[in-house]
Design a protein around this nucleic acid. Structure first.
Length: 561
RNA sequence: AGGGGCAUGGUGCAACGGCAGCACACCGGACUUUGAAUCCGUUGAUCCUGGUUCGAAUCCAAGUGCCCCUGCCA
C-alpha cells in the first residue's frame, strides 16, 4: 500500500490551487484527454490519461475524451473503439466524446476572422521555400513575399482553397506573427494546409485541414476546458496556444506541461512499436511483451495495479526513466491478493511412490491463498501413486543448502505426505527417467504426528489427472536498459532480446485449471503468475503466459542446479 | 549558437527559509506447508561556485550538464 501523504501535492495541483485562490476559473476544473486515433494506447499514454482524468476527479470536475483527428492521412476509425475500451477498462469515464473534426466549421470561421483582422494570410511558398524563409535556430527568418497581400485577396484565396481549386501543397494559410521570433513556432506558423484526403469521419467534405496548433487551443476553449495538460515538448507551443486564443478573444484555458513516462526495457514510440510488429519480433500489438494496454490486459495486469503504478511515479517536469521493476511491484502486489494459487510443474520429472496402493486415489483440500490463514476458498486436488515434480526439485548429489528432494532426505509433498527417495530409474546414458520413493501414511495432510520436521516442501501434480499445457515465459523484450534512446529506424531492432520468449510445451497442471478463463491470472506455486491466453487456450492443451520477469527468484533457483 | 525547460540516494517522487523523507531496487536478518510471498532492518542523495540569512535543497548571481524547438505531424 502506498498511501501518498495527503499534504504532498504535485506541481499541477499547486497551479490549480493557485487558480482557485485567485478565482480564475471560478473554482472549476475541466480537463480533456486528446489521443490521436492512429494506434493503440500504451502505458505511456496511461500516465497522461490518469493525470487528465485524475485531476478532474480530484477537484470534482469532469473530463472530455477528444480524438485529435486533424490529420486524415494518419488516422483511422478502427482505433477509436480500442481507445474507448482501454479508458473504461482503467475505470474512467468521460463527460463527452468528441472529435477535433467536430470543430472544422467553427475553426474555419475563426481563420476567416483572423484574415479579416489582418492576422493571417494565404501563402504560396513551396515547402522548400518555406523552410528557407523560416531561418534557423540562430538566424531570424524573412517575410514571405505574400505576407502583405490584401486582406480581400487572402479571403478569396482561402475560400477557394476550401472549395478545392488548388492542389495539395500549393498554398497554406499562415498566421502573421513574427518571422524574427526566437521561438520558431511563432515564425508565421501554418494554420491550414491543403490535403485532398478522405477523413475517417468527414469523408471528402474538406480538403483543407487545420494544424494541431490552430485546432487544439480553440477546441479546449469551446469545450470550456480549464486545464489543458500535455507533454513537455509542447512548452514551445504555449505562446502560440495563447496567441490564437487572445487574438480570437476566446475563453482562455491554461496549458500545463509535464514529463512523459519512459520505462526501462521497453519503448513507447509508436513508430518503434509498429516496427516490432512489422518485423515480426512480436506477435502483434497484443503480444504480452508489448507495452500497450491491450497487451497488458491480455497478460493479466490488473487495471488497479496500473493506476497504482501511475500514482506512485508522480508528475513532474524532469525527463526521467522509471524502472520497470516498480510496475511489476504493483502488479505483484495486486495479484497476490487476487490470483488464486495453483500447482503447476514446468519441467516434469516422474515421481513414483512404491508403497502407495497402485489403484488408490485420494483428494486433498488445498487453499487458494495459502499465505492467508483465514482463507476459506480452496479446491480438491487428486493424488495417487505416480506424480510429476519439477526436475530441479530432485538432486542426486545435493549441493550444500539444498533442501529439496535428494537420496535419503525426507521432504513434504505440499498438502499431502512426507516422502523419501529410495532409487532412481536411468537410461543407458545415465539420465534420470523417474524417481522412486516411499511415503509415510502417518503424515497425511503434511504433518507428522511424531512432530518431526522436514526442511523442504515441493509441489506436485498427479500424473493420472494432470492437464498438459504449453507455458510461454516472457522476458524483457529489450536487452538495453533504456531502449528509448536507441537509434531511429531498423537498427534498433538489433537490441531486441532474441530469448525474450521461452516456450515450455510439456508442462503439467493440476486439473482444476481446466476451467481457466482467458485473461484470468493464476499464481503458480514458486513459478510466478500466469494468465490463460485468450487467443490460444483450448480444452486439452491450455496455453498460459507468464509476463512478470521474476528474474531474481529464477536466478536463485537455477543457480543451484 | 538563439529560444524554451529541467537538475535531490541506483531509479522515480516529496520537503516551498527551520531535523532532507517515501516507494521501488540493492544488501542483511526473521518467518513460513517450498528458498516464492510476507515481515523487519542497514547502506545510500540536494550539479558546481559565490552571495543573502541566526539558518538555504528552497532566495539571489555566475557557471556546468541534460532535454525540447528549424513538419504543410501531433
Amino acid at each position: 500500500m502506498t498511501e501518498e501523504s495527503s499534504t504532498s501535492k504535485n506541481f499541477i495541483e499547486e497551479i490549480i490551487d493557485e487558480h482557485n485562490r485567485t478565482g480564475r476559473f471560478d473554482g472549476k476544473v475541466k480537463t480533456r484527454f486528446p489521443p490521436e486515433p492512429n494506434g493503440y494506447l500504451h502505458i505511456g499514454h496511461t500516465k497522461a490519461l490518469v493525470v487528465d482524468f485524475g485531476m478532474a476527479e480530484k477537484y470534482g470536475g469532469s473530463t472530455n475524451l477528444r480524438y485529435d483527428d486533424t490529420n486524415p492521412v494518419k488516422e483511422d476509425a478502427e482505433y477509436v473503439d480500442a481507445i474507448k475500451k482501454d479508458i473504461h477498462w482503467l475505470g474512467f469515464d468521460y463527460e463527452q466524446e468528441l472529435y477535433a473534426s467536430d470543430y472544422f466549421e467553427p475553426l474555419y470561421e475563426m481563420a476567416v476572422m483572423l484574415i479579416k483582422k489582418g492576422k493571417a494570410y494565404v501563402d504560396e511558398l513551396s515547402p522548400d521555400e518555406m523552410r528557407e524563409y523560416r531561418g534557423t535556430l540562430t538566424e531570424p527568418g524573412k517575410n514571405s513575399p505574400w505576407r502583405e497581400r490584401p486582406v480581400e485577396e487572402s479571403l478569396d484565396l482561402f475560400e477557394r482553397m476550401r472549395k478545392g481549386e488548388f492542389p495539395d501543397g500549393s498554398k497554406t494559410l499562415r498566421a502573421k506573427i513574427d518571422m524574427a521570433s526566437p521561438n520558431i513556432n511563432m515564425r508565421d506558423p501554418v494554420m491550414y494546409r491543403i490535403l485532398h484526403a478522405s477523413h475517417h469521419r468527414t469523408g471528402n467534405k474538406w480538403c483543407i485541414y487545420p494544424m494541431y496548433d490552430f485546432a487544439h487551443g480553440q477546441s479546449d476553449s469551446m469545450e470550456g476546458i480549464t486545464h489543458s495538460m500535455c507533454s513537455l515538448e509542447y512548452e514551445n507551443h504555449r505562446p502560440l496556444y495563447d496567441w490564437f486564443l487572445d487574438e480570437l478573444e476566446l475563453f482562455h484555458p491554461q496549458q500545463i506541461e509535464f514529463a512523459r513516462l519512459n520505462l526501462t526495457h521497453t519503448v513507447m514510440s509508436k513508430r518503434k512499436l509498429r516496427l516490432l510488429v512489422e518485423k515480426g519480433y512480436v506477435d502483434g500489438w497484443t503480444d504480452p511483451r508489448m507495452p500497450t494496454l491491450s497487451a497488458m490486459r491480455r497478460a493479466g495486469y490488473p487495471a488497479k495495479a496500473i493506476r497504482n503504478f501511475i500514482d506512485a511515479i508522480g508528475v513532474a517536469k524532469s525527463d526521467s526513466f522509471v524502472e520497470v521493476e516498480l510496475l511489476e511491484h504493483f502488479v505483484r502486489d495486486e495479484l497476490n491478493q487476487t490470483a488464486p494459487r495453483r500447482m503447476a510443474v514446468l519441467r516434469p520429472l516422474k515421481l513414483i511412490i512404491d508403497n502407495y496402493p497402485p489403484e488408490q486415489t485420494e483428494e486433498f483440500q488445498v487453499s487458494d491463498f495459502p499465505q492467508d490463514p483465514d482463507c476459506q476458498s480452496g479446491r480438491l486436488v487428486p493424488f495417487s501413486r505416480e506424480l510429476y515434480i519439477e526436475q530441479e526439485d530432485f538432486m542426486e548429489n545435493p549441493i550444500p543448502k539444498y533442501f529439496r528432494l535428494s537420496p535419503e532426505r525426507e521432504v513434504r509433498l505440499m498438502s499431502a505426505y512426507f516422502v523419501k527417495v529410495v532409487s532412481t530409474d536411468k537410461d543407458s546414458d545415465g539420465n534420470i527417467l523417474a524417481v522412486h520413493c516411499t511415503y509415510d501414511p502417518q503424515t497425511r495432510g503434511g504433518n507428522a504426528p511424531d512432530g518431526r520436521k522436514v526442511k523442504g516442501t515441493i509441489h506436485w501434480v498427479d500424473a493420472r489427472h494432470a492437464l498438459n499445457a504449453e507455458l510461454r515465459l516472457y522476458d524483457y523484450l529489450f536487452k538495453d536498459e533504456h531502449p528509448e534512446d536507441l537509434p531511429e529506424g531498423e537498427v534498433f531492432t538489433d537490441h531486441v532480446n532474441a530469448d525474450s520468449l521461452e516456450v515450455l510445451k510439456d508442462c503439467k497442471l493440476e486439473p482444476s485449471l481446466k476451467d481457466a478463463l482467458p485473461g484470468q491470472p493464476w499464481q503458480f506455486v514458486r513459478n510466478g503468475y500466469f494468465t490463460a491466453d485468450s487467443l490460444a487456450s483450448r480444452p486439452e492443451n491450455l496455453v498460459f503466459n507468464r509476463t512478470l520477469s521474476l528474474a531474481d527468484s529464477w536466478a536463485k533457483i537455477q543457480g543451484q542446479k
